[in-house]
Design a protein around this nucleic acid. Sequence first.
DNA 1: CTGAAAGCGCTAACAC
DNA 2: GTGTTAGCGCTTTCAG
Lengths: 346, 346
Amino acid sequence: MANVCHSRPPCATTDLVIPPTPPRRAATLHDVAREAGVAVSTASRALTRPERISAPTRTHVQEVARRLGYRPNRIARALPSGRTLMLALLVPDITNPHHFGLIRGAEEQARAAGRTLVLGDTRGQAELETEHLDRLGSVVDGIVLASSRLPDAELLDLAARRPVVLYNRDVPGLPGVVTDFVGGARQVVAHLAALGHRSFAYLSGPREAWSEARRWAGLSAAGVDHGLTATRLGPFPPTVEGGPAAVAAGLACGATALVAFNDLLAFGVLRELQRRGVPVPAGVSVTGFDDVFGADFCHPPLTTVAVPTEEAGRALVDVLLAPPDDPQPTVLPVRLRVRDSTGPPA
Amino acid sequence: MANVCHSRPPCATTDLVIPPTPPRRAATLHDVAREAGVAVSTASRALTRPERISAPTRTHVQEVARRLGYRPNRIARALPSGRTLMLALLVPDITNPHHFGLIRGAEEQARAAGRTLVLGDTRGQAELETEHLDRLGSVVDGIVLASSRLPDAELLDLAARRPVVLYNRDVPGLPGVVTDFVGGARQVVAHLAALGHRSFAYLSGPREAWSEARRWAGLSAAGVDHGLTATRLGPFPPTVEGGPAAVAAGLACGATALVAFNDLLAFGVLRELQRRGVPVPAGVSVTGFDDVFGADFCHPPLTTVAVPTEEAGRALVDVLLAPPDDPQPTVLPVRLRVRDSTGPPA
DNA sequence: CTGAAAGCGCTAACAC
DNA sequence: GTGTTAGCGCTTTCAG
């Protein structure tokens, strides 16, 4: 039995006899074909294009494949076709609840389209984003980049190689979906104005983030519209850890309302305020952005801007799978969710 | 110029002249080699084993590669070598904060080892887990399965094909790391007993989860040790949505303490209790499991069992990369974190 | 309907 | 050092 494959040594290539014994190593299509007594091309078709094969051969091959425990090698399959049926979603921070909906929505839509979504966390660092892209880029059929920190040029370059869609980032010529930050900002300011505030401090996030600029633009514009003076403080880390520094700065400037870059930072702010014994909203009002998990059970429940993230996730994958001729970014409507962290100024 | 590759049609294979014009399609190693006037193997080595190539050729090839914007095709590279430098981590629920640390730890360790970690969400469904495995299985070099819902046999079968490590699941013969649920349960019960409780209700999670059985085993054992009567209620969905049903059952049985399967369920319980106007811990004590994001700022802050998840993530990847001869599961110590949701019985 | 053969892009012996 | 060549496992013309 010269050509029976044993566990370790690679198979000898000189096959003279057809052995009935299945090889112990992962069964390949060749194994199935040989065992079934057909050509590999026939075996291939029997498994992937059943309609082009006569019923008897088809079932026989499938039976043999099953018996051998054959599993197609996705890598080998992807080489000729160039398609892996995998999509990638890169987020700057997978622990940010804001991305939950995005992930869920994207995954659902991907699955519905017969694709598998793989996730990558870039930690908000361009360097890691590039690394992921290098590794995954040639492996997936398309990429969703959430809040990418990469320069426009690199994004354009990437998009020239394979389908790319952007979330909360606007690069002319590239498709994507963006949150209506400006509208959200206006709603926050209008709410604050209605409450009687005359000014507010914006606790800003990463300057590299495209969304940071959008938020501030909306906030300052709405500020002049409503006659509120807006002060931009920071940047602070967009996490609960950013709280202490943000509170220190916010209180120092005497603001009656603190508008945080996102909910995570708002959570940190709330906690720090509590530590300092500053009552919310009696002493100072606080707002967030995103309406993430926890915003309704923190203390006090947070007034924040809700973003339809699941919808965003679905839209992103849709666009990835069927790129529009006109790459206009879709803009997602948002809604202010008033809870207990905002009230009239002291 | 017969062999200049144009955008669409595949390259003609009969090259007679060496054209100076780089092809517009993604540059391949062949393009680089041709353009640099060397053999593909030389080009390959210049890019991946620089030390085995003379300085002039090496720099020349690298320069040409750069100019052509050459990016190695990971798929093609993986075919002969069988290695993609990618690792997969499949979790039942990516939105469960419990997995954050796991993901972070695993990702860090993977990166340190020069690997890229891809994440998959199985939604706690065996079916989706299988699907992910089919797709990713032959693409990654190893797999971390968190709280797998697959039967032992399938796991064993999978492990025969490629490296697999389990998180919170014990399958004889397979390496993994597990949380010390029994120890955690004992700490919870001891704490409750010290507070003066005489009984408690366990709001259980998915029966299919291996960890569910472990928790209950620890809880009931500790119950007899401390002379507390334990009642197992449920199962309830291990999410905040499970709260109402769990509270209804818990209150109906007259328990003075509610021990939730995990923090997410505990959050839901807290919220439902508040809705019903039942004071915590004055009316009833509540505990969770995991110490996830939010446990310290929910209302009231939750007494729960903290699990060193980042450490788990790192350990998991370590084991994946260097499988131990003896696949004894590593058990992770846990610590009870006492906050404000527990107190003496009414 | 089935088989033979040519690659997909890259790496790795094995020569020169 | 560098070039030649043979695949990795699969899909896909192209014949028969």
